[in-house]
Structures are given as structure tokens and as C-alpha cells.
Design a binder for these strands. Structure first.
Lengths: 153, 153
DNA sequence: TCACATTTAATTGTTCGCAATTGAATGTGG
DNA sequence: CCACATTCAATTGCGAACAATTAAATGTGA
């Protein structure tokens, strides 16, 4: 009775790993987003930062980091690039000089209108109903939060 | 009737984006994996390459790239680091000298036994039944494949 | 056979992502 | 008031990830 794989190896098989499903799905999203975001002059992580700022402007770096689960080592250079692109302004808070507040420029605000086309294109590319996507999103978020709970945050 | 957000903005809200759910879940996985893989001396992408090689040894770089959706720009330096760690051997194929074949060293093979503990720890961290995880994985893979179909691969 | 296209890795340059450290500003206990 | 810890952003260094290019090997058609 020949077997291609040992049963003991099943947990190590690539196709059985949910982490690889998530990892490769994230890269697939990135590739779908790329041509859309190129038109806005943004990378995907930059787009995420803009999403945060379009919801609430003039926030410290730390708040952005908490929402996106990113630290200053990632955000500081990214925000400097957004500033070089004239989409945001970085200013030290006068109340607390440790903080740097990130505010949208008029161009940064204006980009929001062009960005509205993006979620529509992604929905189309997903080839899936909105309700299915919402259900999946909620499941994935729940899993993510359980993982984050383990590493204590 | 004051509203915090315009309904027209709903598609742009961070928490409504499945892509961000996937993106942040991938990073959460990475953080859970990190202490486990540190013990093996591997990064997460290196672990993925080892998973491929533990299933099938002595494969060209291109095959690894197709399974993991990565290109030579990512894999070449990664494989050189695995070679420097004495886990793999890189040799030009004699039949087709364009190809570089990746083979496990005895140490690379031996690492598989230490790696068996990893999926168990991840399962525990997920705080979720195996059947639920399998169902989620299949959904995410299906979504990923639909996205990949759009960008043509 | 020979020009030409294709395939395969490697290389270069840019941007993330994170650990670890630094330095300045702020908060706190004695 | 002052030593001390904490907070916050910036910096440094390393490892992905990918686009674009290069170079060598191989395949193909006239």
C-alpha cells in the first residue's frame, strides 16, 4: 500500500497551512491593488495610512500605528515619503513635543475622491457577493484578534 | 441627525476592508510564528521554502517560486541565506544549465523533526477547531485563486 | 545551420516590516 | 525639586517582496 506522503507529515504540508493561505492571499491582494494604486501614486501600505487619515485627520503617528499594527520604524519613512509627495504634513505637537501629528494637505484630501473607485474594482476582482466578503472578513478579523491575544496586545 | 461618517465613505473605511483583514492577519501570524521559528533559526518565508523542500527535494528555483508565488528576486538571496546556514545546497542542473536545483542537506532534512512542533503551537494559538480552520483556509484559498485569475496567472 | 525568441537565475534599486537602540520630552515618587 | 522611569519618534540594520534589467542557456523557425 504505497503512500506518497506519511500521515505524520500532513500538518507540515504547505496546502494544509492556513497561514500560507492568508500569506498568499495578502500577496494576491497586493498584486490586484498595484495597478489601481499606481494611478493614485500610492503603495498599498501608503493607501492604508491614507484610509486612516481620511477617517480622522491630524492624528499622532502612534494612533496610525495602533490602527494598522505598524511601528515607527515602518511609519516614519513611509510618512516622510507621503510628505515628499505633498499628501500629508508632519508637525510636532505643541502640547506634547514628543508627538508628531500627521495632517492631510488639500491634495491628500482631494485624493479621497479618486480613491473611491478602488474598493469597487477590488469587489469586482473578488468575484464574490458583498455579504460573503463581509462574513469572511469577520471570520478573518476574529482569527487575527485571537492570534494577537496570544502574543499579548 | 448627526452622522460621524458619510454613507458614501463606507467602502473606504479601514474596518470594512477585507484586504486589511487579510493583511493584518498575515502580520499577526508572522508575530506568532516568530518565536517558534527563531528556535529553528528560520524566518517565516524561509520556513515556507523548507516546507516545499520537505515535501519534495532537489527542485529548481522556479518550482519553489510557483508554489509560493515568489520570484527569483526574492528567492535567490533567501536561498543563499539557507545555503549559508547549511540547510540547502544549490547546484546548477547538468541537463539544463539555466536551472539551479535546490537540495536539502542532512541538517535541512533533520530540521523537519524539530519543525513538527510548529503547526501544533499555531493551532493552539488559533484557539479554534481544526475543522473551522480548514473551512476558513479553503475559503481564503478560493478567494486568493479568484484574485490571481484576475491578474492572469 | 543560424538568427531570433524564450526560459531561467541573478542583479539592482525601492519600499515594507520589525528588532534594537537612541534621544528628547514628559510623568512620577520621594 | 530632582532622580528616575516612561513615552514617543527617529534611526540603524537585516530580511523580505517586487519591478526591471541582464546574461547565459536552450528552443524554434526559416
Amino acid at each position: 500500500m504505497p503512500r506518497k506522503h506519511s500521515a505524520a507529515d500532513a500538518p507540515l504540508r504547505l496546502d494544509n497551512q492556513i497561514c500560507f493561505a492568508v500569506y498568499s492571499a495578502a500577496h494576491a491582494f497586493n498584486r490586484v491593488y498595484k495597478p489601481l494604486l499606481d494611478r493614485l501614486g500610492l503603495t498599498y501600505p501608503q493607501y492604508l495610512v491614507m484610509l486612516v487619515l481620511w477617517e480622522r485627520d491630524d492624528v499622532p503617528v502612534k494612533d496610525i500605528g495602533e490602527k494598522l499594527h505598524l511601528d515607527s520604524g515602518t511609519l516614519t519613512p513611509l510618512l516622510k515619503r507621503l510628505e515628499a509627495a505633498h499628501l500629508v504634513k508632519r508637525t510636532r505637537s505643541s502640547e506634547d513635543e514628543r508627538q508628531v501629528l500627521i495632517a492631510l494637505t488639500p491634495q491628500g484630501q482631494a485624493l479621497k475622491d479618486k480613491a473611491r473607485a478602488v474598493p469597487q474594482s477590488i469587489l469586482a476582482a473578488s468575484d464574490c457577493s458583498v455579504s460573503e466578503l463581509v462574513a469572511m472578513k469577520d471570520e478573518i478579523v476574529a482569527l487575527r484578534d485571537r492570534l494577537n491575544a496570544v502574543i499579548g496586545e
